[in-house]
Design a binder for these strands. Structure first.
Lengths: 99, 99
DNA sequence: TTTATATATTGACGTTTAGCTATATGTATT
DNA sequence: AATACATATAGCTAAACGTCAATATATAAA
């Protein structure tokens, strides 16, 4: 996963509603019809958010009759986590004596 | 760290330039005057990006004379990582028999 | 005290975004 | 075939965003 992919995922997670959607999906696959109840947004807006989450491949869809079931894409989530976890933070490298 | 904080950090990392800045800082503290050379943006734009990264507390500043030294905020980065790492992805919970 | 340098702020701009309403599409039921 | 329901798309609007040029602020050097 390269920086552009990561930026895209971050942009997707940068919206509070979408972050909450991802959290909700983190507890397992959900039908759009159930998800809509939890948010104060209209159906088209939810659909729009799901499209963005699918486009960055953070979310998968499974169609069952007229229902859409969304779930987290484990592979993408895992690659994203790896990338974030590699961002090192070395306190000792800060300059200045501080003494 | 709550969802709003995480969304703010993600929004900050959702811009390619800012993500690259964070990557650069991941190798240690940097002076703004050095950072500007690595990007094709003007000085005011860099300053603007740094302000956003500071506002979500992902980045710290240290002033030394007329130079500003930026570094990652270990505490925030760590809390952010924890949050992302808690996002579970359980492939088995997806519905459908698939068999 | 003047000049040079590093950074921040202001104000303007074109673009992107989240949200809505209205409508279209697809699927199941009657 | 007609109806009902779930979801997607289109088109719009207001707000937010990334960028820049111009200018202000702060510090160091001459």
């Amino acid at each position: 996963m390269n920086a552009a992919d990561v930026a895209l995922i971050c942009k997707a997670l940068g919206d509070s509603n979408r972050l909450q959607i991802v959290e909700m999906l983190s507890t397992g696959e959900k039908c759009a019809c159930k998800m809509i109840d939890k948010f104060e947004i209209t159906q088209p807006t939810l659909s729009h958010h799901m499209k963005i989450l699918r486009e960055c491949e953070l979310v998968d869809v499974r169609k069952e009759g007229k229902w859409m079931h969304y779930s987290l894409n484990c592979e993408t989530l895992s690659a994203f986590r790896d990338y974030i976890n590699k961002l090192a933070c070395d306190e000792s490298r800060k300059g200045g004596c501080g003494c």
